[in-house]
């Protein structure tokens, strides 16, 4: 049974990757979105670059990542056609669909936030004290954002005005995660000892776990409608 689900998940992820690869405009569009947003920020701050304090640097980066995540994941359900959804419905269990979507979106978010970070530190300067901790933070945030937004995208795609709804539903829910991430990233920038950040890391991990479990439990009900 469990190996069956694992197989389904693997196939579904593979299908997502293939689809994405065939229509390259989606992923490259998102990459371009990150890069142009970063560039807009760079040009807007250009005049006063020396006034870009670490706090502003950090906050700006995470807000860019947040908007990228919302835009990238919003389409994960709405791009599927109705007939194709029915086809999945008859083929595989809802659990494997949500898990595969979460994993796939996490991968996309890892890619996007990684690229975003590289480009951001390239143009805006890089003042990070502890690179390992910052990468861990990126990793946790990418997974967390992806898992929250996947379920919300599933909810919003059922409604008519899904673009507005996506933002309204996800921003307040994602806020605790965003605040924790910003705090953890600030610790990483200041190069504090890891023991200082264990609180934040464990909170982020537990929020991720809660969200993934809830998505796993709740998605079947969403899927049926």
């Amino acid at each position: 049974m469990s190996s069956g689900i694992l197989n389904e998940i693997k196939t579904l992820i593979w299908k997502e990757v293939t689809l994405e690869w065939r229509q390259k405009y989606a992923l490259s569009g998102m990459l371009l979105y990150v890069i142009s947003t970063v560039f807009v920020c760079y040009l807007s701050f250009n005049l006063r670059r020396n006034q870009l304090t670490p706090i502003v640097w950090n906050t700006l980066f995470w807000i860019i990542i947040l908007f990228t995540a919302v835009n990238a994941i919003a389409k994960s359900f709405s791009q599927e056609r109705y007939g194709r959804l029915l086809y999945y419905y008859s083929l595989c269990s809802p659990q494997s669909i949500i898990i595969s979507k979460i994993i796939y979106n996490s991968l996309i978010m890892l890619l996007l936030s990684g690229m975003g970070f590289v480009f951001y530190s390239f143009v805006m300067g890089n003042a990070i004290g502890d690179m390992g901790l910052f990468i861990l933070c990126l990793f946790l945030a990418a997974i967390g954002f992806a898992s929250v937004l996947t379920l919300v995208a599933g909810i919003a795609s059922k409604a008519d005005n899904s673009a507005t709804l996506m933002a309204v539903l996800s921003f307040p829910i994602i806020l605790p995660m965003l605040l924790m991430t910003i705090k953890l990233a600030k610790n990483a920038m200041d190069g504090l000892d890891w023991s200082v950040s264990t609180d934040e890391i464990s909170t982020l991990l537990s929020i991720d776990l809660i969200v993934i479990t809830l998505s796993y439990l709740l998605f079947p009900y969403l899927w049926r409608s």
């Binding site: 909810i155 059922k158 008519d160 005005n161 709804l165 539903l169 709740l218 009900y221 969403l222 409608s225």
Partner: peptide
């Protein structure tokens, strides 16, 4: 934002638990 009652009920219940 939903017209259909059952659909509204199911999806908003999911969101309520999550919220």
């Amino acid at each position: 934002s939903f017209e259909d009652e059952q659909r509204k009920a199911r999806i908003s219940s999911v969101y309520n638990i999550f919220a």
